[in-house]
Amino acid sequence: MFQTRSARLRYHLVAYTLLILASIILMSPLFFALSLALQGATAAPSLIPTDFTKLDWGVFAAVFEQQPIIARWIANSFVQASGVTIGVLITSSLLAYALSYLNFPGKTILLFFALGSLMIPFEVTLIPNYLFISRIGWKDSYQGLIVPFLASGFGVFLLRQYFMTLPRELYDAAVVDGCGRLRYLWSILLPLSRPALATLAVYTFLSTWNQFYWPLLVTNSNEWRTTQVGITIFRNFEYAVFNIQMAATLIVMLPTLILLVLGQRQLVRGLTAGALKG
């Protein structure tokens, strides 16, 4: 595509300069957090560490020593995010299966019912849900953090779209051969739908891990907080200690960053599912 070598060189030079510049600007808040974390317990940190030989890498271990509760917060977030993810996979695939393979009166209504849930904003259901959860004594519990999110309109939509692309003959043939409906779902449909399930799993885990509003309301005692709420509490009682605060923030970011790097393809597929429909 290039006429001469120098044109090719110029293209690459400009391209890499722009790409690297954009990356540095984008990452600067993270560099800032890392810089503050590594400068020790000072109330007046500088923007860029003055002495790179004296960086305090032990701060990440120090977080767990000084604030052992953070391990519990991470565990809480893991239980919540995994619980919601597994639950959403089960409920969504069952409902999507009924909507794409079974023929019954009221099917359209059921579809609208599932997708209509996406039209009701979280803020509206928040207050009644909070009152309900506190009344049945589910504050400060895993049930309270997990159960309200066990069904997802997005999940039903995503899996139904995927199930519909699989050949119908497969289902008819399996039924003729005496395969039960549930067995078809479990041993044929779900293995075939692994890409869609992975997408839903990555997306659900990520958004649950990053929840802030709901855990803020339904957790009261320190040991029931999740990571997202936890790091903001840190901010209140450790106000002057920037290094611990930033190190903790970077630590709780790690699981989702790893998930993003490993599951980027799945995530991208899920995020674009709503936007790109031909």
């Binding site: 990356s23 984008l26 990053n210 802030f212 997202q228 790091i231």
Partner: peptide, 19 residues
């Protein structure tokens, strides 16, 4: 790198930007 902010929660981001 351009995608990475998806993995950073609003809470983490808020704590960093507050500083």
């Amino acid at each position: 790198i351009f995608t990475s902010s998806i993995a950073i929660s609003l809470a983490s981001s808020g704590v960093i930007w507050a500083l």
